[in-house]
């Protein structure tokens, strides 16, 4: 896959239009894991918009992001940084050829109040 294709893929998976971002930094202003992340939430959006996917794929932040969705909740432009991080994380795991999660594991753990993305990202992180 070329870099451009990888970018498009991550954008598609995240369902987020990174061009909507107006660089206010509210996502990073709210992020509770900010100090643990080598690449900050707002930089995920910005780097993806610039096509700099390779830096994102190498980042340690995809494992320190809590998927708490605070950034998604706070964004005034309906951009979802956590969804971008999740998409990058997913891309890395898929490239490793392992998902670590079985379909039958899901139903008993689903709580309707928990964002589904949080469950998914948690499974991925803990099974990496």
């Amino acid at each position: 896959m070329t870099v451009k294709e990888q970018c498009e893929n991550v954008k598609r998976m995240s369902g987020t239009d990174v061009r909507k971002c107006m660089k206010c930094g509210k996502c990073s202003g709210r992020c509770p894991a900010f100090h643990e992340m080598d690449i900050k939430p707002h930089q995920f959006v910005s780097l993806l918009a610039q096509g700099r996917i390779e830096e994102l794929l190498k980042s340690e932040a995809i494992w320190s992001c809590l998927s708490c969705m605070a950034c998604v909740e706070r964004c005034p432009r309906a951009v979802a940084p956590a969804a971008v991080i999740e998409a990058v994380r997913d891309t890395v795991i898929r490239a490793q050829g392992a998902n670590g999660m079985k379909a039958e594991d899901i139903p008993p753990m689903v709580d309707e109040l928990i964002p589904q993305q949080l469950l998914m990202s948690a499974y991925r992180k803990y099974n990496k």
């Binding site: 660089k23 206010c24 930094g25 509210k26 990073s28 202003g29 709210r30 992020c31």
Partner: peptide, 20 residues
């Protein structure tokens, strides 16, 4: 940068935001 949260801690308003 934008502020992500404001919370009260011992009577002080803690303003947490980004310096981009």
């Amino acid at each position: 940068g934008m502020v992500g949260k404001v919370y009260n801690e011992n009577g002080k308003l803690m303003v947490q935001g980004s310096n981009l």
